[in-house]
Design a protein around this nucleic acid. Structure first.
Lengths: 139, 139
DNA sequence: CCGTATCCTGAACGATACTG
DNA sequence: CAGTATCGTTCAGGATACGG
């Protein structure tokens, strides 16, 4: 793409929104913080896992292979703090705590899903690209 | 963790498996890798910055406040490797190198934009949630 | 102008052990 | 079951200096 003088560039979101320039400078700090949280690996996976409905701690842990107790707890607390998930403990024995997406969290979930779908749809292509790139670098 | 397999160019592979149930287990590993790249803070910002058209190294650096030369270079190489951006050097003096989104990158850009818009639209709400949460914890 | 090559630090993360 | 507390390690990433 981008032949010669950069004239024939493909269509580029003629839609409403440009990138960063769309938000005033004073907001960029917090927007970055939000992006950091959102872009966080475990947060993404937790939000994705909660897409099908509420889950309790252990189920969450099981449905996200590789996550440590520590990181799950931490991630859940952050998401809770940001108001993206709810945490409802039941006074039973044995204890039960359920986590669920808030409306705000559902909002984010949609985007996360599109991200995951994108990754799923293109991982093969990306894998090939990487292989090709590495082949050129290390022949 | 010992270097079990592969030569890990970027982040190390967490453990096994991955996110949602909608993709077969064997793909989850690479999907996580893709998500890691995509969810990466700097990658996001670079992709966002390239939304308006091709940019050269320095312009890129200027339009992403806070990024170090090192991270910009690294991020650009990863994105290039994944086939999300092109890198075209011009044999001039002084040197000029332009980076641009590939069609695949444009694809991702749309999602990134929705993420940024989401962050922009909800950062105020999130800020309030955080304040409320912290107030309850530390009264 | 466009990077690469080193060095160094903090904090992110996993592992482990312990409670209500 | 659903966490908390602590410790040790790794490594992402900034700072700096140099090279084509």
């Amino acid at each position: 793409m981008n032949t010669a003088a950069g004239k024939a560039v493909g269509k580029r979101t003629p839609t409403i929104s440009g990138p960063c320039s769309r938000w005033p400078a004073e907001n960029r700090g917090i927007i970055r913080q939000v992006l950091d949280r959102v872009g966080d690996k475990w947060s993404t996976l937790v939000v994705a896992a909660l897409g099908d409905g509420p889950l309790r701690y252990t189920d969450l842990k099981d449905s996200i292979p590789g996550i440590s107790q520590r990181m799950l707890t931490l991630t859940l607390r952050q998401l809770h703090r940001d108001g993206l998930i709810t945490r409802t403990p039941y006074a039973e024995v044995p204890p039960r705590v359920e986590y669920d997406l808030t409306p705000l969290g559902v909002n984010l979930h949609d985007i996360v899903v599109s991200l995951i779908d994108w990754a799923g749809n293109h991982h093969e292509e990306i894998r090939e690209n990487r292989a090709r790139f590495d082949a050129r670098i290390t022949p």
